[in-house]
Simulated scan of single mutants.
Amino acid sequence: MAAAKKTPAKRGPKPAAKKTTAKKTTAKKKTAAKKPAAKKAAAKKPVAQPVVANKVVAAAEKALEKANLVVEKATEGLAKAKEKKATVAAKARVSKTAATVRQLDAAKAGLAKAQANLAEAKAAAKEAAFNLKLAGVEGSIDSVKEKSAERVTAFAQGLEEKKAGDLEKALASFEEKWLLTREKANVRKVKAFQKKEETKIAAAGRKIKTKISALKKQQAEKLKSKPKARKAKA
């Protein structure tokens, strides 16, 4: 009976192993389901070039905005420095103590620093504006290149569409020219052949005439010889 109790304890861990395999299969299915996302990213590749051009312009615009904000802050700082100097100078006129002199010197130094900061900020803003203009020009060059490529493609397509018709026209023109030249050549060849045939006819005519004259002579000789033969028999 003790052995019968131990057997269910050994069989217990087996269903747990099946659960782990089921989890693995579900995990594999989830990872397999994520694969179409990679295909979508690959489909967006042709749009990469115009996006890059827009990013350059957008970055230049942001840089110009930041530079203009720095100019505004530097302008506010210069105004505050001027006010501070004015107040300290007014105090220094009333009481010229060492403390007021130090405050006036510090206010003057702050004003000079604020002026330098504003000049530096304005220079940076000018540079950012130039960079934005340059990015726009570069973007226009890219658009010109794209339009040129489109025109080249359209021109190539037009030539491809006209190819069959142009070939037909060229063949018809070639056929017409070839027939005219062939006709002229045929006339020349016929004339030359006719001359050869005429010379052959003339030669044959001469031969026939000589043959006829020979036959006539033979006939005349036969006629002359026949009466003499009759006299001999008498």
Rank of each mutant, 00 (worst) to 15 (best):
E160L: 14
K6H: 01
L215C: 01
K73M: 01
V144Q: 11
N117G: 04
A129G: 12
G12D: 06
K28D: 07
N117E: 15
E197G: 02
T75E: 10
A92S: 11
E175I: 05
S140G: 06
A43E: 15
K30R: 11
K84Q: 01
F174N: 12
G165M: 06
A124L: 06
A53H: 06
T26Y: 08
K73N: 04
A74N: 01
V144K: 04
R151H: 07
V52R: 14
T100M: 05
P50A: 12
N131F: 02
L78P: 00
V190H: 02
P36D: 13
E72G: 02
T153W: 04
L223I: 05
K133S: 09
S143I: 14
K39Y: 04
A192I: 03
K29N: 10
K191F: 06
R230H: 11
K113R: 12
A170T: 15
A67W: 00
K233F: 00
K18M: 02
L132N: 08
E120W: 01
K226E: 15
A149Y: 01
L69D: 00
I208A: 04
K196W: 02
Q103K: 14
A114W: 03
A16Q: 13
E76L: 12
A37F: 10
K30P: 10
A58F: 02
M1F: 09
N131K: 10
L132S: 08
N54F: 09
A172F: 13
S225A: 15
G136D: 02
A106P: 00
A17M: 05
K231C: 08
V70S: 06
A229N: 04
R206N: 03
K91G: 00
R188S: 14
L179W: 07
T75H: 06
K169H: 07
K133C: 00
A59H: 10
L111W: 09
A4Y: 05
L167G: 07
A220V: 04
P13S: 03
Q218F: 07
S213T: 05
